[in-house]
């Protein structure tokens, strides 16, 4: 295969992976921005999205009865709704009682919630890998020279980018978005300016998990195979992406996610498959060594 086509192939692999990491990373970064809390259970909400999608599309058979576009559209709406609800409940049960406590207490609570959710998924849906059914979407592949581009891959990428664009507009162009940004900068000051911080917190705990759940559904549809501990690895990678992009920064999460996906694909394609994750982490650590608050976060003086 000519070098350029090989490169294009890796590029497309990287962008698809990266767009999914970016979607999940957004959930981490939004919650962090407002709450200064790393929501370690976010990966599990992502997995929950995948399993709810499985239940709707495969167990209830929406995929067969409604036809792919309608079924997937409907399940996206329901998955996003249900995972948001789960996110809200998580905030209510595991984080709100700890809001005025030490930050690390909330981290451990989040880790506990993550262990709980992962095992709840295992008990509910079983420990086996679950299949989405291979023929949910028509198997169309575009060929450009030796370079292959399956339609599903394009759709996943487009969906992820569209959602991120919408979120960007929401955060930067609406009043609610303004409230989110204000609360992220300084909760106390935002309160004084009349921002209902409580509402903002609930809002980010709805939007973040919704994006994670959507990513879970996309992974299910795209790869066709899900398992109960899938949230762990995706969560860790997306969290890394969020940090490297500059945690709390929404554009940073998108950039971080795409960068991570590309690094992985290119590392795998040109250097080594088995060293890929080590290389990726090494590059990310180096980025942080030279830009200690991530790629896009402004360098602020340390708070005194």
């Amino acid at each position: 295969m000519p070098d350029f086509e090989f490169f294009l192939q890796q590029l497309s692999n990287g962008l698809t992976r990266g767009s999914i990491y970016a979607l999940i990373a957004l959930g981490y970064t939004m919650v962090y921005g407002v709450m200064k809390l790393i929501n370690f259970a976010h990966g599990e909400l992502f997995a929950l999205g995948a399993y709810l999608g499985y239940t709707l599309l495969v167990v209830f058979g929406l995929g067969g009865s409604l036809g792919p576009p309608l079924a997937i559209g409907l399940s996206i709406i329901m998955v996003v709704g249900l995972v948001s609800l789960a996110g809200y409940l998580l905030e209510r049960v595991a984080y709100r009682p700890l809001r005025s406590s030490d930050r690390l207490a909330a981290v451990v609570s989040a880790l506990g919630a993550s262990i709980f959710l992962q095992n709840a998924i295992m008990l509910q849906w079983g420990a086996q890998y679950r299949a989405f059914g291979a023929d949910l979407l028509p198997n169309v592949v575009f060929h450009i020279g030796g370079f292959n581009l399956p339609l599903v891959r394009v759709l996943v990428f487009v969906a992820a980018v569209a959602v991120m664009a919408a979120l960007h507009v929401f955060v930067h162009r609406t009043r609610l978005g303004l409230a989110i940004r204000a609360a992220a900068i300084d909760q106390g000051a935002a309160k004084l300016m009349g921002v209902d911080v409580q509402k903002v917190i609930i809002l980010v705990f709805i939007i973040g998990p919704a994006l994670g759940g959507l990513a879970g559904l996309l992974v299910g549809v795209y790869y066709g195979q899900i398992n109960f501990n899938m949230g762990q690895l995706y969560g860790l990678k997306a969290f890394t992406a969020a940090i490297v992009g500059g945690i709390g920064n929404i554009t940073g999460a998108m950039v971080g996610g795409l960068l991570l996906g590309l690094l992985e694909a290119l590392g795998e394609g040109y250097i080594s498959v088995i060293w890929k994750d080590a290389i990726t982490f090494l590059v990310l650590i180096l980025i942080l060594v030279f830009r200690p608050t991530g790629l896009l976060k402004e360098r602020v003086a340390e708070k005194l």
Partner: peptide, 9 residues
């Protein structure tokens, strides 16, 4: 989950 890179190689 993505083995396309290995497969292209």
């Amino acid at each position: 989950r993505d083995f396309t890179v290995s497969l292209t190689r």
